[in-house]
Design a protein around this nucleic acid. Structure first.
Length: 334
RNA sequence: GCCGGGGUAGCUCAGUUGGUAGAGCAGUGGACUGAAAAUCCACGUGUGGGCAGUUCAAUCCUGUCCCCCGGCA
């Protein structure tokens, strides 16, 4: 009996030891890139720029909206204060008519990371788009682009027949994926249908054959902030953005692209100001809606990041602690 | 003061030939594999303005009082 207990103990100790051993070797030492996530308004941009300055790093965008060139103010892209501190990549480089995607992002960001590492600097990937972080760090299925006609066809089908009808078809084509999503989820249902038609393989097949996973040694940090803390910040930020010319920015963007359905216009703040400019809402109503949507978005982000197993929460007030942790874990020679 | 409309969930409102009520939005939690600032899911006890009356039973009918909106004075 004693023998068995001893054996059991040894096994447990062995498991614990190997867990830490692997963690130390795979995640903790030789960290080469820093990922800084957090809800909108939590102060990522300022912190990232400061860290970039301190550590000789380069900030790389991980925010789907901050790609859009027409909306630097409304999407809270890093301003002169930040860009003066260190180089910033992948900000403000997309026209409102063009779409970004998680796969495209992973490729672009990956290329940027390689370049930054080649320069012997530290990539600091910063943003609020959880899916982009995941695509970058864990890879994403290597699905070829779906032709526009195919995509449009399924969107129309969904509109005409309803999502439930398409869901029934999907259950035949891809029962496993259908089981994971809801019959009301038009976006995921149409996506599954278009991929199946365009590639001849269903999404489950693609997800299982996932490639593009890189062996990135990353430190995944989440800037902690509760919704309660964020609320006043987000409320105030809207006024600050308007003072800084958000409305003029939207007007100017309208000259480049007047289609409210264009990818660039779907951002929070952009959509509300578009409706205000169209006379559909007063500025006051637009502001209220803008705030509501921003708050709801921050809440969704918190839900996402809370569920990320390898994310470590950090406190914004503890700058020196953050710096010390990063320096301990980072080998800078690239 | 008179006439009319109204007071129902945090907000906007629906409904009940009288059998104690439900949508949207908001809120909370959650999901998330190429639109992700997107898309979607789950969660609904509220002195039905107060009081009194009719009734087996009132949020609904009657009376009365209070409050809001519009019109007339």
């Amino acid at each position: 009996m004693d023998f068995l207990i001893q054996l059991f103990d040894k096994t447990i100790i062995g498991m614990i030891y190997s867990y830490f051993y692997h963690n130390m070797h795979n995640n903790m030492s030789e960290i080469k890139i820093i990922c800084l996530a957090g809800a909108t308004g939590s102060g990522k941009s300022a912190l990232a720029a400061k860290l970039g300055h301190e550590l000789d790093g380069v900030v790389i965008n991980a925010d789907s909206r901050q790609f859009y060139a027409d909306f630097p103010i409304i999407t809270a892209q890093p301003g002169p204060d930040e860009t003066a501190l260190c180089p910033h990549l992948l900000y403000g480089c997309l026209p409102a008519t063009q779409k970004m995607s998680a796969g495209q992002y992973a490729q672009k960001a990956s290329a940027c990371i390689d370049e930054v590492l080649r320069q012997g600097k530290i990539p600091i990937v910063t943003g609020g788009t959880g899916l982009y972080f995941r695509a970058l760090m864990h890879g994403i299925a290597d699905i070829p682009p779906v032709p526009r006609e195919v995509r449009q066809k399924w969107q129309e089908q969904c509109r005409e027949l309803g999502s439930h009808a398409l869901y029934d078809s999907l259950r035949n084509l891809d029962p496993d994926y259908a089981a994971k999503i809801h019959p009301n989820d038009r976006q995921r249902i149409t996506r599954a249908m278009e991929v199946a038609e365009a590639t001849g393989k269903n999404l489950t097949w693609w997800h299982q054959s996932q490639s593009g996973k890189r062996d990135l040694r990353y430190l995944y940090l989440g800037l902690g902030a509760t919704l309660k803390e964020l609320e006043p910040v987000l409320r105030r930020r809207i006024d600050v953005m308007l003072d800084n010319g958000a409305l003029e920015e939207a007007k100017a963007a309208l000259r480049h692209c007047a289609d409210p359905k264009a990818p660039g216009w779907s951002g929070i703040g952009c959509a509300e100001l578009f409706r205000a400019l169209a006379g559909e809402l007063t500025i006051g109503e637009a502001k209220d809606l803008w705030y509501k949507n921003t708050r709801a978005y921050a809440k969704r982000q918190l839900t996402w990041f809370r569920g990320e197993p390898d994310l470590r929460w950090i406190e914004k007030d503890n700058y020196n602690g953050i710096l010390r942790m990063i320096k301990n874990l980072t080998i800078t020679q690239g």
